[in-house]
Amino acid sequence: MLSEKELQEINTELAHAVTKASASVDALNIIQRHRGWVSDEAVKDVASMLDMTPEELDAVATFYSFIFRRPVGRHVILVCDSISCFVMGYNPLLDVIKNRLGIAFGETTEDKRFTLLPISCLGACDRAPAMMVDEDLYGPVTAEMMEEILEQYK
């Protein structure tokens, strides 16, 4: 079941939308903002609001890297693994995260605090190596800074 708030936000998008389906990404983003991820049940509920079949909506959801179809931790660490960050050394950062949190790309810590994912070029190549935690951008990140950055996210 969608919450009152989710329904209201999706309906606001629908009021502007040319076709209902064209609000699909907005609607999925709304669900994810409230719940952290998009469950099968949420796909069904949203699909019916958009006059789409769950399969049609899921085809859209699974196309995108940042619609999470599985639960993620309370915070998502996104390390840029594209070219400028490769040249400037993102690999040492991954080693720090691995040692500190015991997770690799695609994994979540046991206490559900962090999920670690790669992200394509953050458009912050002048600040490489760059990373995001939730909505916050960091760069250039050094191994020494990592502890302090992660401590801000409980």
Partner: peptide
């Protein structure tokens, strides 16, 4: 004028894929 916030896929920058993305289809 409205903003469309995407959900992270490089191909959406290709102009015809971008149109499918705006229509809410696979891009």
């Amino acid at each position: 004028l409205r903003i469309h916030g995407s959900a992270g896929r490089y191909i959406c920058g290709e102009e015809t894929a971008l149109l499918n993305a705006l229509e809410g289809k696979r891009a």
